[in-house]
């Protein structure tokens, strides 16, 4: 009987990946295993996912694939953030041009207002 004490928080709709991987390796404690199996019987996404993951050799293969997928996700997110940052940051010359124009307008206003 396994003594590991992983819990699946009841307020969460999906178990952590580590819990799923431990289940696949048959390393999950009895209570957590029971909790997960009740969840997968009720939950279509979890049930289908487990059925698919069971086709892999073991939890280690699933863990390797999971890291690969997370790397891919993070890469896409990183690229997206970079593009966004580029799109919102003005080039320096635009800022300098706007500042110069504003200063010229201000100087013009001062000169005109001082004319008799």
């Amino acid at each position: 009987m396994s003594t590991k004490k992983h819990h699946i928080p009841t307020d969460k709709s999906v178990p952590d990946n580590t819990v799923v991987l431990e289940y696949l390796n048959n390393d999950l404690g009895d209570d957590a295993k029971r909790q997960l199996e009740e969840m997968l019987t009720e939950d279509e996404l979890l049930g289908d996912a487990m059925e698919g993951l069971k086709q892999l050799k073991d939890g280690n293969e699933a863990a390797a694939i999971s890291s690969q997928l997370n790397r891919m996700i993070n890469e896409k997110i990183r690229k997206r953030r970079k593009v966004r940052l580029k799109s919102i940051s003005f080039p320096l010359w635009i800022i300098l041009l706007i500042t110069t124009l504003l200063l010229l307008m201000l100087a013009g206003y001062v000169i005109i207002s001082k004319l008799p």
Binding site: N17, A49, G52, L53, Q55, I65, S66, N74
Partner: peptide
């Protein structure tokens, strides 16, 4: 900030892979 989506997607990455594995039967 897309980083929030990254965290959300990571939560589901393994499960979505499992679903795809169930139907496509090829890693």
């Amino acid at each position: 900030d897309s980083q929030w989506l990254g965290w959300l997607f990571e939560r589901y990455s393994l499960l979505v892979f499992g679903v795809c594995m169930k139907y496509l039967r090829n890693a």
